[in-house]
Computed example of a mutant assay.
Amino acid sequence: MLEGCESRRAEGGLVRAPRVSYRLNDAATLLTEPGALAVFGFGGSAAGIDDPRWSHVPLEALDAPTPCELWLVDGPVQHGHHEALRWSAGGGWLFAALELDERDHGGPAGAARVAYAQLRDFIRSRDEQQVLRIWNYQGAINQGDGDTERYKLFCDGRAEGCGDWFAHGYPAATAIGHHGEPHLLQVYLLASTHAGTAVENPRQVSAWRYPRQYGRTSPGFARAMRLPAQDALAISGTAAVVGHASAHEGDLAAQLEEILVNLEALLASAGMPAGFDTQAPLKAYVRHPADAPRVRELLRQRLPGVPVLLLQGDVCRSELLVELDGWRYA
């Protein structure tokens, strides 16, 4: 049960991190829970619900039954719409989301530019102005050659839409390709009244310093974000990248092992103990559904008891077969 809001304030007056979990309850029931900030359903089985806190994520789940993802905060939650944008807020936290049809905005770059400009303007009108974590789901993410690859066009548009929004530091983020409506761009975020602490991985070049071979515009994200009360780490999409190069092309098991090494490096950089536990929900984005059983088994061996949601999703580099993101609580 949730305790009173005052009992959940961390030292220094900072509010406790949202509690993220996977639940097999139906979404409508989860939305009635005290402090429900957001609920997510996955793939074709996700039912439509008319509530700004509800999101249908266009990634097919590779496990059955498929749970929903629930974010809980301490305190009452308000929610509503602002033009095309959905939002909810409570306990010092803000969820904001929107879905755009790229055809209405001239393609992937235009849709990303509009999405980020709308989110930027909305956040600047709020008390919860510290963006800590962003998720991006784009159709056909690897389609196109060179600078015309759709993910690279997304990065161009995102930077234009952001302007100077993240001049003082990037949030953690994920960008994954979906197999739903091909023109759909979905973006959602978590923001707070207090700043977090960005975390980089010493094994990897920071994403915004990638060389020109990865596009005109480097991806803008931190590898992870320590939340304001230092009680949780929001982990960005993490793949088999060492330095700035993809590793172990064509070798699923080796890529997954490299990801786990990168995750441990992130925990160390964040000053957190090694390892993951039953309260650390992760997502595994798997390019080829036929690889799901092997990914599932490898993760059960290496991360026993850790809740992992397997989803079909394309990593932003076509040679990479799997990516992980998620949460680690202190």
Rank of each mutant, 00 (worst) to 15 (best):
K152S: 01
G250L: 07
E160D: 00
S125A: 15
G12I: 04
I49M: 13
R124H: 10
Y210P: 00
R133Q: 15
E33H: 12
L30P: 07
L72I: 12
Y137E: 03
R300E: 15
R53S: 09
P219I: 01
D101A: 09
L267E: 06
Y151R: 03
Y151W: 05
A280V: 08
G243A: 09
P307R: 11
G237N: 07
M1I: 11
V242Q: 14
S88N: 07
W208V: 06
P273M: 08
P228Y: 07
L98I: 06
L309R: 13
V241L: 09
R158C: 00
R216H: 10
A239W: 07
D251G: 02
H288V: 11
S125P: 03
A140F: 07
E264W: 07
E83K: 12
N201H: 05
V315M: 08
G13E: 02
H178Y: 07
L132M: 04
D26N: 15
A270M: 03
L153M: 02
A10L: 06
D74K: 05
A270S: 04
G91L: 08
P108Y: 02
R150N: 00
V73H: 08
L263C: 08
A10R: 05
P58G: 13
G146T: 06
A97D: 14
D101G: 06
G220L: 06
E83I: 10
R300W: 10
H244M: 10
V306T: 14
